[in-house]
C-alpha cells in the first residue's frame, strides 16, 4: 500500500532524509521510531504529499505521489504532528469541512460524522468550539478528521504525544481497531507503544533507516546471544568466578546473590551452568532468560549506526 523508493529530502542544504526505501503491505500496522530530528515527520509529510521529495519515489495504493498526487492523496488519512484544527468552529463543522475537502459525497457526510464521533468518543463535545477543548479532545478530533473518509492508508504522526495515560491507552486501542482493515504507519518515540500496537517497526536515525523488521526478530538479531539472570545461594564472588569458567559465558555481573550472565553464540549454556553449580554444592534458586527491552534494542541500533560512520 505504501512504497517508498530511494527517497531523499533536503531542507536548504541540510539533509533531512537520506535515500530511504521501505514498503508497508496492506493491512499492516507499522511503527516508525527514532529520536527527535531523525526524519520521521519529514518522511510522513512526503508520504502525504505535503512535501515533495528531492529524489526518489513515493507510491500510495499504486499511485505516484508526485505525478498523480490527487489520486494518491484520496487514499490517505493523515494526523500531522501539530493537529490541524480551526479553533473558531465547532467539532461538527470542522469534521464537515474535512469530509467535504476529502471528497466525501454530501449524502454520506452526516453518517460519517456520527460514526467517527462515536468511534473517537466525542459525542458530548460535537457542538463545542474546538478552541475550548483540552489537548486530549483536540487530539481525538484530529484522529476523527483523519478517518472521516475511511481511508485505506492512515498516517499518524506522534498520535499519543501530550495526552494523559488513559487517553493514550484509548488511542492505542483505536489504532489497533482501525488497523484490522487498514494500513497504518504511525510514528512515536515511546518504544513500549510500538511493542503494544504494531507488528513491525522501522527505526530511523539521522535521516537513515537503521533497521526494519518484526520487533522480536530485531531484538534477537541484535542480541547476538543470550542473557540470563540467575539467583544462586552461595558465596557471591566464588559463584561469579565459577560462572565465568562455564563454556560460552562471556560476562558476569553480580549484585548480591543475583548474577546476570551474558552468553555468546548460539549454544545454550543453561545446562552447563546448572551442573557447575550443583557440583560446587550451591543451589540455583531461579534462572530466567532476559529479553532485550525495546529501549536496549533502540540504543544498540543507534550505537551500531554511529560506529559504522
Amino acid at each position: 500500500m505504501i512504497k517508498v523508493e530511494n527517497v531523499t529530502k533536503y531542507y536548504g542544504k541540510r539533509l533531512a532524509v537520506d535515500n530511504i526505501s521501505f514498503s508497508v503491505k496492506k493491512g499492516e500496522i507499522v511503527g516508525f521510531v527514532g529520536p527527535n530530528g531523525a526524519g520521521k515527520t519529514t518522511t510522513m509529510r512526503m508520504l502525504t504529499g505535503f512535501l515533495a521529495p528531492n529524489d526518489g519515489e513515493v507510491e500510495i495504493a499504486g499511485h505516484d505521489m508526485l505525478r498523480h498526487s490527487l489520486e494518491a492523496r484520496r487514499y490517505v488519512g493523515y494526523l500531522p504532528e501539530s493537529i490541524p484544527l480551526y479553533t473558531d468552529i465547532t467539532v461538527r463543522s470542522y469534521l464537515e469541512f474535512a469530509a467535504r475537502l476529502r471528497g466525501l459525497e454530501p449524502a454520506r457526510v452526516k453518517d460519517r460524522i456520527d460514526a467517527v464521533v462515536s468511534l473517537c468518543h466525542l459525542e458530548e463535545y460535537v457542538d463545542s468550539i474546538i478552541g475550548k477543548l483540552s489537548k486530549g479532545f483536540r487530539q481525538r478530533v484530529g484522529v476523527a478528521q483523519a478517518i472521516i473518509h475511511e481511508p485505506q492508508v492512515l498516517i499518524l504522526d506522534e498520535p499519543t504525544i501530550g495526552i494523559d495515560p488513559l487517553q493514550v491507552a484509548m488511542t492505542r486501542q483505536l489504532i489497533r481497531d482501525l488497523g484490522k482493515d487498514r494500513t497504518i504507519l504511525f510514528s512515536t518515540h515511546i518504544l513500549t507503544e510500538v511493542s503494544t500496537v504494531c507488528e513491525r517497526v522501522i527505526v530511523m536515525h539521522q535521516g537513515k533507516i537503521v533497521a526494519q523488521d518484526r520487533i522480536e526478530k530485531l531484538a534477537t538479531i541484535l542480541q547476538g546471544g543470550r542473557r540470563l539472570r540467575i539467583e544462586i545461594s552461595g558465596p557471591a564472588e566464588q559463584v561469579a568466578s565459577r560462572l565465568r569458567k562455564v563454556d560460552g559465558v562471556t560476562q558476569v555481573s553480580t549484585k548480591g546473590s543475583r548474577h546476570v550472565v551474558e552468553c555468546s553464540g548460539a549454544q545454550d549454556p543453561r545446562a552447563a551452568i546448572m551442573q557447575a553449580m550443583v557440583e560446587s554444592g550451591w543451589t540455583v534458586l531461579s534462572l530466567e532468560a532476559l529479553a532485550m527491552s525495546l529501549e536496549d534494542v533502540f540504543l544498540k541500533l543507534i550505537a551500531r549506526q554511529e560506529a559504522k560512520q
Binding site: 504529499g49 492523496r73 490541524p84 484544527l85 480551526y86 478528521q145
Partner: peptide, 14 residues
Amino acid sequence: KMGTLELLLTAPVR
C-alpha cells in the same frame, strides 16, 4: 502558522 495548511495541502484538492 496553525498547521492547518497540512490539512489543505494533503487533501485531494488542487
